[in-house]
Design a protein around this nucleic acid. Structure first.
Lengths: 337, 337
DNA sequence: TTCAAGCCTGACACCGGTGTCATAATGTTG
DNA sequence: CAACATTATGACACCGGTGTCAGGCTTGAA
C-alpha cells in the first residue's frame, strides 16, 4: 500500500498541493467545486496529513507538556484525565514530564525538554503553578503556558483554579457546627500555594465563629501519607486531645485515621477527621472521609483548552477563572460527644 | 536571539551540513579533526537538533505511545513511571492514550492515533497486552510494540511480565500455612490475563496442600474497588463464613476490609484478608494488607527500553522475560483462631 | 610509478507539508 | 465597456534535517 501524501492527493484531484493544503486548513478562497472535489479525494484515498511535516513547516509540534512534581498520584491521574480530554478535542497530544521542583537543574531540565520536543505549550500543575522562577522563565522564552490550581489571579495568563480557601472554610465550619472547638489542623507542603489557602480558610472559620486560634493545634505536613503519620502521632499524643482533625488533604487524613484506629480510638465517636480533595482513598476506607471535592479534571481541561486556543491565535486577554469546590460529608465526622 | 540550525553550525564551522549531520549521528567517515571542530561549534552555539525535522526526514517521531484501559489508577501511574524512565534515557517522549477496550471503535481509534502522531512504537499494558485483535493489527501494520504483564510468552515480540501465577500461589500458601482452609477468592476482570493466572496460582496452592477446591468460595470481581464491595458482601454473608479472603488485587481487598470493619469484624482476628499488587492503599489502611509486590515500574522500563532498541535497529530475536514477584506480609493476615 | 581501494567531504534531492507572491479568472463600478 | 477590486489557483522557496552519490584525496600493493 502506497503512502498517501499531499502530492498524491493533489495529482489525483488535478489541483496543486497548495490548494489541497488550503482545503486541509479550511482556508478561504477556494471555490466550492474545488473544495468538494478535494474532500472527495481525501475520502477515496483515505488521506491523513502528516503532523510531523506540518509541525516542521509551522514550527509546531501539536504536543502539550504537562509537568508535575506531586506526591499525590491520584491527583496527577486526575490532572492527566482532564488534560487528555482537552487534547483529544483539539487533536493535540499530551506529553508527561515529571520533574523535581527543588534542585538547580530544574530550569535546565525544562529548557532541555522544550528544545528536545518543541512543545507548543505547558500546563503547570501544583506546585509549579505558583513557582515564579519557572513562570518568569517561560515568559522570557515566550512559551505559552496555563496554570492549574494556582493561588494568585493577578496575572496576565491562563489560570484555572478552585477556591481552596472557601473549601477549607466550609469544612472547618462543618466541624464547628458539629460542636467541635479544639480542631487540629495539618498543613500541606510549603511549596504548594494550596497549603496557605487552606490554612487561611481554617483560620477564617475559627474567627467567624469566635473560636480562639491555638497554635499548638497546627502540625506541619507535606501532603504525603507519610507526613500525615507523623502529624497524627503528635496530635493524638497531645493532652487534651483535640476532638477533631482537619488535614489539608485526604492522604494525611487517612494517615490520621489509620493511627487513630490502631490506637483503638473510635472514629468519629472519639475523634472526627476531615480531609481535602476527595481522593479515591476517601471513600475506600472505613469510615469514609468527610472532605472537599475539587473539580480537578474540569479545571485542567479548561486550562488546556484555553491554552490550545491561545496557541492557535494568541489572545491579549488573560483567562482567569475559579471553579466551585464542594463539601462531601461521610462517616468520619460527627457531633462532638 | 537567532535560532541555531544545522545550517548556522555548518557555515560557522566551515563544513557542509551533511558533515554536521554525520557528527550528530556518530556516523563513521569523519576525520577526527573535523569532528572535534564541529563538536566545539555545537557547544559554542548551544545547538540542539530539531527533532521534528529529524522525524520528518526519517519518518520517525521519537515518541512512544502508552495505551491503557485500566481501572487501577495507581497501576497506571507505576506503568508511566517505568515507561518515562526508559524514555528519558533514550531521548524519547511518552504519549499517553487511554482508550476503551470494548467497543468496535478501538482499532479505528488506535489507527487514528498512529496516523495522527506517527508514533514509533506502542507499549501495551493490561488488558491490551493480551488483546489478540490489537496485537494482530499492529503486526499487520508493522508497528513495533512491547507488552507489559502479558500472560503468554510464546510470541516473537517483546514482552516483560512478572509471575502472577507463582505470586498467587505463594500468598495462598501463606494463608494455608496460617491454618486457613476456607479461603475465599475474588477474581479480577475477565479481560485481564492476570485474572486467570492468579486464579491458577490459588488453585495450585490448594491442591498442593490437599485442600479441596470449593467453587462457592469464588467470587467474580473486576479489579475495581466497587466490584470488591459486592464480592465482599457475598462472602461475608455466607455461612459458614470463610476464615480468609484472597482478593486478586489490593483495591478489592481494601473493599473487603472496609465492609468487614463496617460489620464489626476484627481483621485479622475474625478474618484474614490478602491482596495483590502492593498498591499504595495496601499500606495506607489499617490493618495493612498482606499482598504480592510486583515490579511494575521495572517491567515497563525494560519493555520500553527493548522497544526503543528494536525501533533503532529491528531485532530478529524476541525478548521475553519474567521478573520476580514477592510476598509482603502485613497485619491483615494472621493465624486462624 | 601506477592504479585500485578506501576514506572524507559536499552538492543536491527529498521528507510532506505551509507561506509568499504572481497571475488568471471573475465580479463590480462608473 | 474600460478600469479596478476581488477571488481562485499554482509555482516555488522554505522548514531543518537525512539519504544518495559523485569526486578528491590518501593509502598500499603491484
Amino acid at each position: 500500500m502506497k503512502k498517501v501524501t499531499i502530492n498524491s492527493v493533489a495529482s489525483y484531484a488535478g489541483v496543486s498541493k497548495k490548494t489541497v493544503s488550503r482545503v486541509l486548513n479550511n482556508e478561504p478562497n477556494v471555490s466550492d467545486a474545488t473544495r468538494e472535489k478535494v474532500l472527495k479525494v481525501f475520502k477515496e484515498l483515505d488521506y491523513t496529513p502528516n503532523p510531523i511535516a506540518r509541525g516542521l513547516a509551522q514550527n509546531r509540534s501539536f504536543i502539550i507538556g504537562c509537568i508535575y512534581d506531586n506526591p499525590s498520584k491520584s491527583y496527577i491521574t486526575r490532572v492527566q484525565t482532564g488534560a487528555l480530554a482537552a487534547c483529544k478535542e483539539n487533536n493535540y497530544n499530551l506529553l508527561i514530564h515529571p520533574c523535581d521542583l527543588r534542585g538547580d537543574a530544574l530550569i535546565n531540565n525544562i529548557e532541555q525538554l522544550l528544545q528536545s520536543s518543541r512543545l507548543d505549550g505547558l500546563v503547570l500543575t501544583p506546585p509549579f503553578s505558583d513557582f515564579q522562577v519557572l513562570v518568569d522563565f517561560l515568559k522570557s522564552k515566550n512559551i505559552p503556558y496555563a496554570r492549574v490550581a494556582s493561588a494568585v489571579l493577578d496575572d496576565d495568563s491562563i489560570s484555572v483554579r478552585s477556591n481552596d480557601e472557601q473549601g477549607a472554610f466550609e469544612i472547618t465550619e462543618h466541624l464547628i457546627k458539629l460542636g467541635h472547638k479544639a480542631i487540629a489542623f495539618i498543613k500541606g507542603h510549603p511549596d504548594h500555594s494550596a497549603t496557605e489557602q487552606r490554612f487561611k480558610g481554617y483560620l477564617r472559620a475559627l474567627s467567624t465563629h469566635d473560636i480562639t486560634f491555638n497554635e499548638r493545634l497546627v502540625e506541619e505536613g507535606n501532603f504525603s501519607y507519610h507526613s500525615g503519620v507523623d502529624s497524627a502521632r503528635s496530635i493524638l499524643d497531645s493532652t487534651p486531645r483535640p476532638t477533631a482533625v482537619f488535614a489539608s488533604n485526604d492522604y494525611m487524613a487517612a494517615a490520621v485515621l489509620k493511627l487513630a484506629t490502631q490506637r483503638q480510638l473510635k472514629v468519629p465517636d472519639d475523634i472526627s477527621i476531615a480531609g481535602f480533595d476527595n481522593a479515591p482513598i476517601a471513600r475506600h476506607i472505613w469510615p469514609g472521609l468527610t472532605t472537599i471535592a475539587q473539580p480537578v479534571e474540569e479545571m485542567t481541561k479548561q486550562a488546556v483548552t484555553k491554552l490550545i486556543e491561545h496557541i492557535g491565535e494568541p489572545q491579549e486577554n488573560a483567562y482567569q477563572i475559579t471553579l466551585e469546590a464542594r463539601l462531601i460529608t461521610r462517616e468520619s465526622t460527627a457531633h462532638v460527644k
